[in-house]
Design a protein around this nucleic acid. Structure first.
Lengths: 107, 107
DNA sequence: TCTCAATATATCGCATAACGATATATGAAC
DNA sequence: GTTCATATATCGTTATGCGATATATTGAGA
């Protein structure tokens, strides 16, 4: 399976997942693995840079859980993140219908 | 609009267009421009590397038009290209439904 | 108690490819 | 004969997917 298919779409996946409930990186990875086909699953090594990127863009915010137990950073959507999610959903719909129109002939 | 969205999907667009009728690079570019939204249109500079790539993979084959007139290379699908197109269409359907499931909540 | 697997985060490096910019040449129209 | 559309080609930048690797903690079981 082409590994470039996800390019540019992964942020939408993360934001949509975090909109359901706040999660930390590892549980997010498990969550996504459970609901997308094998070929599309994110490696853990992909999740953290993505989360850092989204936090830098102020679309999500993470807080360290503590003080007891293993350190984990739980992320949730910011106000900007919610708007971005809506925008990315629209963007996906546009892209999706364009691709389907172009690639799949109407019979 | 995110410029990474197309990653990995552009070959499908080209193959699907050439399945309709053989074209050379420039007309292909015009063809695609006419049927996809502004934000997704391919610059001409994108078309030729793509065509070279597809020809190297033996999915399309180009023949120089001649001898009179401006030089132009007309591309059409090979047998392998037709199979690849079918595979990429399936791949798109899988990707498409996965993304929609994950990104757009069912109400 | 010792070990191992699962949990949890982080970062490095490679490969791929979108995409704008730029170069070059021909043909047609004015 | 100058300008615009046609036609192909390539370079450099940038983004990012993704595997590999490193490190630390916790809990279960032998």
């Amino acid at each position: 399976m082409n590994r470039e298919l996800l390019k540019g779409h992964s942020e939408l996946i993360i934001l949509a997942a975090l909109a359901q409930r706040p999660m930390h990186g590892y549980s997010l990875s498990e969550h996504i693995k459970s609901q997308v086909p094998e070929t599309f699953k994110f490696g853990v090594g992909m999740i953290y840079p993505l989360l850092h990127r989204l936090e830098q863009k102020n679309l999500i915010r993470g807080v360290w859980q503590g003080p007891g137990g293993m350190r984990r950073r739980v992320y949730s959507l910011t106000a900007r993140g919610k708007k971005a999610l809506a925008a990315k959903r629209d963007e996906w719909q546009t892209f999706q219908s364009m691709m389907t129109n172009v690639a799949i002939p109407t019979r």
